[in-house]
């Protein structure tokens, strides 16, 4: 509990809070979040989450559940083209709203009259994109101007809960490092809960995917990074460069 001239936080750092829990009372300088709400000077949790309490009176509710993505400007997302309109594409980004990708973003120029956008992106294509604009009145707008952005032509997309994305990346990218170095795969984690996995062979691919699924289900248990490292070593051998290690297929 943190007290500071009449302001009180009622839970310790790393407590689990549920909807309706009175987290704190008083004056706090905390950025707005959909995960808690205020009545007068009382702060209540709106979801099942992890309460983070930092020095002074800063608290944050970190969501533990949630299948849909809250769009944020600047985030990298993996979208699925679901419809084609005259000047752009409608994109599913696993959010509450469909997103829009203007054709000019992909083409680098305005489209010519009568130009068929299906030549560039079709329904069922995945794209790696960034959220360029979003507010309460408009659907998210995407851009593919940037290094590595654009149509995804190969690989496997793994779907996870957007709430688990930080866990798959890890503190200082620690978990992501373990995943890529132990499997030798190219792994890109998008903020909207889609992960692009590209591997040299199907064993590494299957193993990387099951490791991601383990992270999803055990995200709250201590020592996960080391357990994932051990799991990957067991399945794939110590070094991804060692050809004979691929012959080791343990159960």
């Amino acid at each position: 509990m943190v007290e500071n001239s009449g302001s009180k936080i009622f839970y310790q750092d790393r407590s689990i809070v549920t909807p309706g829990d009175l987290i704190a009372e008083g004056e706090f300088q905390v950025p707005w979040s959909p995960y808690f709400y205020k009545i007068g000077n009382k702060y209540y949790s709106a979801i099942t989450g992890l309460l983070s309490v930092k020095e002074g009176n800063i608290f944050e509710v970190i969501p533990l559940e949630g299948q849909r993505y809250y769009p944020r400007i600047g985030d990298t997302v993996i979208g699925l083209i679901e419809d084609i309109e005259i000047y752009g594409w409608v994109v599913d980004i696993k959010s509450f709203y469909s997103a829009y990708l203007p054709a000019s973003s992909l083409l680098g120029r305005a489209i010519a009259p009568g130009e068929d956008l299906r030549r560039f992106l079709n329904i069922g294509d995945y794209i790696l994109a960034k959220v360029e604009a979003y507010d309460r009145t408009i659907n998210p707008v995407l851009t593919v101007k940037g290094k590595g952005l654009g149509r995804i032509s190969s690989g496997v997309i793994v779907e996870i809960s957007p709430a688990k994305v930080p866990r798959v990346i890890g503190k200082n990218k620690s978990m992501l490092e373990v995943l890529t170095s132990e499997t030798g795969c190219d792994i890109q984690v998008a903020q909207n809960g889609r992960i692009l996995v590209k591997c040299a062979n199907s064993l590494s691919e299957e193993t990387a995917i099951s490791a991601i699924n383990i992270i999803q289900s055990e995200s709250h248990i201590k020592g996960l990074t080391e357990r994932i490292r051990a799991y990957l070593r067991e399945k794939l051998g110590g070094s991804k460069n060692d050809a004979s290690a691929e012959a080791k297929t343990n159960t």
């Binding site: 909807p19 309706g20 709106a46 559940e65 709430a163």
Partner: peptide, 11 residues
């Protein structure tokens, strides 16, 4: 609703 992570005032 809570399982879905949808913000609620209370259960």
């Amino acid at each position: 609703l809570a399982d879905a992570g949808i913000p609620l005032r209370d259960l």
